[in-house]
Nucleic acid binder design. Structure first.
Lengths: 190, 190
DNA sequence: GTCTATATAGTGATAGAC
DNA sequence: GTCTATCACTATATAGAC
């Protein structure tokens, strides 16, 4: 993933700038300036600005989908799946902070790959919904409006990339434990 | 607020487009096209694209601050304040859906008014923090990491504009009751 | 209040020298 | 792998006619 080539340097720089100002407000000259080269030099390593967005958003979305699919196929309870899914989401947030900003905020600027992205996004959400519904049916979770619980959970997870960048130095494990506890407490039936 | 002048029509149109693509990706031509006029005609009603952003973001932020200040000054318990604050946030979300998207996602493109906005945003967050801390001290809320509870609560409220636009036809009262219940359950000590 | 015409400054991207 | 030079296009915004 992080193979210190020039190309990856460009991708990482783009991610940082996309996070700060958004895809549309970042110019190829901005990216080049950050690397102390000229904008035209970027094109020796990447094909287009759009490609930078695709690299960031699509590969991260695939990582989400693959990890989630593994969790869904485990022979464990709904509450155990939920705990794993939350931890997994926190993991990605911590290790792909900048790319996650692009995924959250700039996906609508994807062109060719937009439908593919939307399918992955929808599948990811559906997996969470299934976990919550299963847990409510089995009595592990308190019965409440599924969509509201789902929305509240996903909102918190999706915004985590901002909060983690700000609070910085809380350890990964502390974050996972506290966050998971807080989120899970709101739905456990006991 | 909604005084059907041409100017307000332009502001409303801009808000809808800003929500869809973000401030930077929306051109004055896009706004003009939506109104079936030429881009140059817009400048008879507004001064600049930046002014459109300011009108949307700053006036809404002021509404948030004013409402929150009133709640903070009421002689009521922390849990009552929290319930009112959540309801108030939901109120604004429902009635200013598009402008709220700009406030959430495009505030960093403010220029002159950016410091003013950041102060308001910080004050709003601090008020929520005070409520949570007071409630934990008094024993109304279960003692947990204040910042994580605060973050989770604000994430859900800030994302609500997206969810409400999608789910559409759930009544305002149903939403308030279900959402407030779900959010509050996670922190009440009983 | 809207139009046409235009000024001025970017924008993403390419060609070709070094 | 980076540069200079440049293209074709688009951006915000203004001036002045109707």
């Amino acid at each position: 993933m992080t193979k210190n080539t020039r190309r990856d340097e460009i991708v990482r720089t783009a991610a940082i700038l996309f996070k700060k100002k958004g895809y549309s407000a970042v110019t190829m000259r901005d990216i080049a300036d950050s690397l102390d080269i000229k904008a035209s030099s970027l094109y020796n390593h990447i094909q287009s600005k759009q490609e930078l967005l695709e690299i960031l958003v699509i590969s991260l979305a695939e990582e989400f989908i693959n990890g989630m699919n593994k969790i869904m196929n485990l022979p464990i309870s709904a509450s155990e799946k939920l705990r794993l899914a939350i931890d997994f989401h926190i993991d990605i947030t911590i290790h792909n902070n900048e790319a996650l900003a692009a995924l959250n905020n700039d996906w609508m600027h994807l062109e060719e790959k937009l439908p593919y992205f939307l399918k992955m996004r929808n599948d990811y959400e559906q997996n969470f919904r299934t976990i919550i519904e299963t847990g409510m049916t089995s009595g592990e979770f308190v019965k409440r409006d599924v969509e509201i619980v789902l929305f509240s959970l996903l909102s918190t997870l999706r915004n985590l990339y901002l909060w983690y960048a700000r609070k910085g130095r809380v350890s990964e494990d502390t974050l996972k434990n506290n966050m998971a506890d807080t989120l899970l407490k709101s739905i456990f039936s006991t």
